[in-house]
Nucleic acid binder design. Structure first.
Length: 96
DNA sequence: AGGCTGACGCGGC
DNA sequence: CGCCGCGCCAGCC
């Protein structure tokens, strides 16, 4: 696999400030990942030590299996969700 | 080689 | 809201 990309993705996610979020697509684009799926995968296997909870899907909802946990962590940073959906227009952070 | 599976995204109906 | 299909790609049979 691509260790370079792997690290870049993690670095970018580490950049997202508390109280803000980014989408898989945003991270993928900033990291030069070929597809957002890669981002999800990298997080699945190596995302424990980065603010993974600040990464949402394009519609503002978290990945299905961690909705609860994730929204809870976000709520702790002041990111409120309407049901399961976070208002991206308000909290979205553009990674560089 | 071929098929399936995802922490995805987007456009269509 | 929901469902469907298609594109994407690394890993693991």
């Amino acid at each position: 696999m691509d260790e370079e990309l792997h690290e870049r993705v993690r670095e970018i996610i580490a950049t997202i400030p508390a109280g803000r979020v980014a989408t898989y697509g945003d991270v993928a684009a900033a990291a030069g990942a070929p597809t957002p799926r890669l981002v999800g995968r990298i997080l699945a296997e190596d995302g424990q030590d980065v603010p993974w909870h600040r990464v949402l899907r394009a519609n503002g909802t978290p990945a299905p299996h961690l909705v609860h946990r994730q929204l809870e962590l976000l709520r702790g940073e002041g990111v409120l969700a309407d049901g399961q959906r976070v208002d991206l227009r308000r909290y979205r952070w553009q990674p560089e």
